[in-house]
């Protein structure tokens, strides 16, 4: 098995641009789709449930939920792109196979896909950020620091998704990843309620998951505070993103270059 670290070249950009050109043809429905789902959750729970609740973490429930929604929708967009869309290009349309016949290495193809899924995820997260800012849930310019965190969150979940794609025999396989990993994180990592509500044993597990790190960075930033242990959370996301991409690359090489 080829365990060597990623060897990247500028050709990865050509792969990224290929996906961008496809996306551009249906950008409007794609952006609306990315926005509609998280917005329904935000307003449904934020106003509906929020009206019944006291202040959560010192702010109104919808303001609390806004930051969680930014992170969760970044995670979801990254996961869908790195799983379903990338798998279509790899396995169904054989787009990667065509690209590999040109002077482009598999490492470049995967890097192009990684950065593409990250871009789509960031677009989704940023769109929510713009909406919640417009609605007045963000007051401090510190919120600008959420932008790089959204990108980093996108990198992390895109790389994790590419691992699953490298192993998937068919689309059905992705159900396991969503059921066992994405949905539990949505519920346990502080998106809808503070992590501290969980039993202590679960708290430490949930707190170690990548979405928790993202939420612990984005939430204080949107509320105008400097996140505690910021470097630890950033380091955890960077390490997860890097290690996950490397593993995805090793597994994809094994799958396609044997």
């Amino acid at each position: 098995m080829d365990l060597s670290p990623p060897r990247l070249s500028w050709r990865a950009i050509a792969v990224w641009r290929r996906n961008f050109l496809v996306w551009r043809k249906m950008a409007i429905p794609s952006v609306l789709g990315n926005l509609a789902d998280p917005m329904i959750y935000l307003f449904g729970f934020g106003y509906g449930l929020g009206g019944l609740l006291p202040r959560v973490g010192g702010v109104s429930y919808i303001a609390f939920l806004a930051s969680g929604t930014v992170c969760a929708s970044t995670m979801n967009a990254a996961s869908f792109e790195a799983l379903y869309s990338a798998f279509s290009r790899m396995h169904v349309q054989k787009t990667w196979e065509a690209i590999l016949n040109a002077p482009v290495a598999l490492d470049d193809v995967l890097a192009g896909e990684w950065f593409w899924a990250t871009a789509k995820a960031a677009l989704s997260g940023l769109a929510i950020l713009v909406v919640v800012t417009a609605l007045g849930f963000v007051s401090s310019p510190l919120a600008l620091w959420a932008i790089p965190v959204i990108f980093l969150t996108g990198l992390t979940f895109s790389a994790l998704g590419l691992i699953v794609t490298a192993l998937a025999p068919s689309y059905d396989f992705f159900m396991y990843y969503f059921t066992l990993f994405v949905t539990p994180m949505m519920l346990a990592c502080g998106v809808f309620f503070p992590l501290e509500q969980l039993p202590p044993a679960l708290q430490s597990i949930a707190g170690a998951l990548p979405l928790s790190h993202a939420v612990r960075l984005v939430r204080p930033l949107l509320l105008g505070e400097i996140p505690g242990n910021a470097l630890t959370h950033v380091a955890a996301l960077v390490a997860t993103a890097g290690a996950a991409f490397w593993l995805a690359l090793v597994l994809t090489r094994r799958r396609l270059l044997n």
Partner: peptide, 27 residues
């Protein structure tokens, strides 16, 4: 130049876009 056994043209692109995008892979 390679003509693979199974067509792997880009179904989302027009004829010209298929060639244009493939050219980018060569820089």
């Amino acid at each position: 130049g390679v003509v693979p056994q199974f067509d792997n043209l880009d179904p989302d692109f027009t004829v010209a876009e298929n060639l244009l995008v493939f050219g980018r892979y060569f820089g």
